[in-house]
Amino acid sequence: MQLQTLAGEPWADYGLVDSGNGRKLERYGRFRFIRPEGQALWAPAQDEWQADGEFVPASDEEGGGRWVFRQPVPREGWPLNWDDVRFTAQCTPFRHLGFFPDMAPVWRWMREQVAGMEAPECLNLFGYTGVGTSAMASQGVRMVHVDASKKSVEAAKANAAFSGLADRPIRWLVEDAGKFAAREARRGRRYDGILLDPPKFGRGPNGERWTLEDGLPPLIRDCRQLLDGDSRFLFLTVYAVRMSALAIGELLRQELAGLGGTIEAGELAVREESRGLLLPTAIWARWRR
């Protein structure tokens, strides 16, 4: 399997300004932030970075850390746009800004897969704050959005309303993604496309324990049951684990055998504005008709 790179390009409200020495400088609308980035092994292009805030990681290996602000940044967040989608960015305790900008080429690719279909329906598992859900709903796609965090689902609803999508056919569910997929498979449900963005570790709303290594294979098997000969895609992203794109690509190849179509895998990356180099962010695998 030949690996590919999906590169996120800068847009008006987001850009990777510079990176290096284990950090990255990004712009989110009118604000700039510095965050840790283990993949940035090289030297930065600029000698000094000016930012409104920086996330300083904890000294232990358990993660954590805190934001240090040099200029006032709205705690409640501020508006951003991607294409025709509006949403709120916010400095979260988990070092990110409430959405993942490297997913932009994935949103565009998913739109392309269902273009021209009559009333397609797609499933967004581990949907988080729902920018991907809004990106599809804005194109007339019926969506089912599932996340174990009530707070994330409420944020996703707010983002959809912010984009003028409150009246679109979006089903919002606070639920364990694995349990939901298994139940949908037993019911004989089917979808035209599935987006999977599972965490390395997580808890369901009722304390269900999720680990990627144990939970991903059965989840993909259940998702296979939700796809048929008329379905268009499944897209899987994996962050922050010691796992290979070749491995998850082979997982899809075996579990989705019989559907026809094409299996591809590779890395997600963001293109740096200062030099044009690519900063890798995640691995992915996908099936398409």
Rank of each mutant, 00 (worst) to 15 (best):
A156W: 01
G15V: 03
L252N: 01
A43T: 08
F162W: 06
A45G: 09
K157C: 04
P44V: 01
G132L: 00
L80W: 06
W67P: 02
G130K: 01
S244R: 12
M103F: 04
S59G: 09
W210R: 04
K150E: 13
R242D: 15
S19F: 11
A51I: 05
F69D: 06
T262N: 05
A156Y: 02
Q39A: 15
T88W: 04
F233S: 10
S274C: 06
E184Q: 15
A148H: 00
G276N: 09
W109E: 12
L97D: 03
N21E: 12
D84R: 12
L246A: 11
E213L: 10
F31R: 01
W82I: 02
D83W: 00
G215P: 11
F94Q: 14
R75I: 13
D228Q: 02
C91Y: 00
I170E: 05
R232S: 04
G260P: 05
P169Y: 14
E208N: 07
F99E: 09
G204P: 01
G53F: 07
A182M: 05
L268V: 09
D197H: 14
P36Y: 10
K157P: 00
E175W: 03
D47Y: 03
R190K: 13
R289L: 06
M117W: 14
M110F: 03
L219F: 03
Q46K: 08
E48G: 04
E62W: 10
F87K: 02
F180E: 09
F69N: 05
R271S: 06
E37M: 10
L252Y: 01
A7H: 02
V146Y: 03
D147P: 02
E264C: 04
R253C: 04
V153E: 07
R66S: 15
L234D: 06
F126I: 04
W287D: 01
F201L: 08
V73A: 09
L216R: 07
E26S: 11
W284Y: 11
Y28F: 15
A240E: 15
G77A: 06
W284C: 00
A257V: 03
G116C: 08
K151W: 12
S274T: 15
A181E: 01
G140Q: 13
R35Q: 11
L251V: 02
D52F: 00
G98W: 04
Q71N: 13
E184R: 15
F87P: 00
S149I: 03
